[in-house]
Simulated assay, not measured.
Amino acid sequence: MKDRIKEQSIIFFEKKGFSETSIQDIVEALNVTKGTFYYYYSSKEQLLMDIHKEYIDDLLQRQQKIIDSGESQKSKLKGIIHLLISDIARNGDSGKVFFREMRHLTYDNATEIKKRREQFRLSIEEVIRQGAENGEFRKQLQPDMTALAILGMTNWTYQWFNTAGELTAAELAEQYSSIVLDGINTRNEG
Score class of each variant (00 low, 15 high):
H52E: 14
T36G: 08
A170I: 12
Q64W: 07
L77S: 07
D57T: 13
D3Q: 11
G131S: 07
A29H: 06
H82D: 04
D3H: 08
E101W: 11
I10D: 07
E71H: 14
W160R: 02
K115S: 01
L47D: 03
G95P: 03
V27D: 02
L181C: 07
R100K: 14
L30S: 00
D182K: 15
I26T: 01
T33R: 08
A132T: 00
E166Y: 15
N134Y: 03
Q140M: 05
R138V: 11
H52Q: 15
P143T: 04
K76I: 06
T168S: 13
K78S: 11
H82W: 08
E71N: 14
H82L: 00
H82V: 07
S94V: 00
F12R: 11
D68E: 08
N185P: 10
R90I: 08
G70C: 06
Q63P: 03
L60D: 02
M102C: 12
R116F: 12
G95C: 13
Q64H: 14
K96W: 10
K15Y: 07
F18V: 04
T154A: 13
M153P: 02
R116Q: 13
I184S: 15
Y107W: 13
S42N: 11
Q175A: 13
T163P: 05
R138M: 13
N188T: 13
K114E: 09
I5Y: 03
I113D: 03
E136P: 00
Q24D: 12
L84V: 14
F13Y: 02
D58M: 13
H52F: 06
M49P: 08
L77V: 03
M49F: 14
L47H: 12
T157D: 00
G92H: 15
R4E: 07
I26K: 08
D93M: 13
Y41G: 01
S178D: 10
A169W: 15
F137M: 01
M153A: 13
D3L: 11
D144M: 07
K78N: 10
Q130P: 10
M1I: 04
E133F: 03
K139C: 03
K65G: 14
Q159D: 04
E126K: 12
Q63F: 00
L151M: 04
H82I: 10
W156H: 11
Q24S: 04
M49T: 10
G79M: 15
G131V: 02
K76D: 00
Q140W: 06
Q142T: 03
K96F: 08
A149K: 08
R90Q: 08
K76F: 00
K65S: 08
K16A: 11
Y39I: 02
I179D: 05
S177N: 10
W160T: 02
E28V: 15
R100C: 09
E133N: 07
F37N: 01
E166I: 12
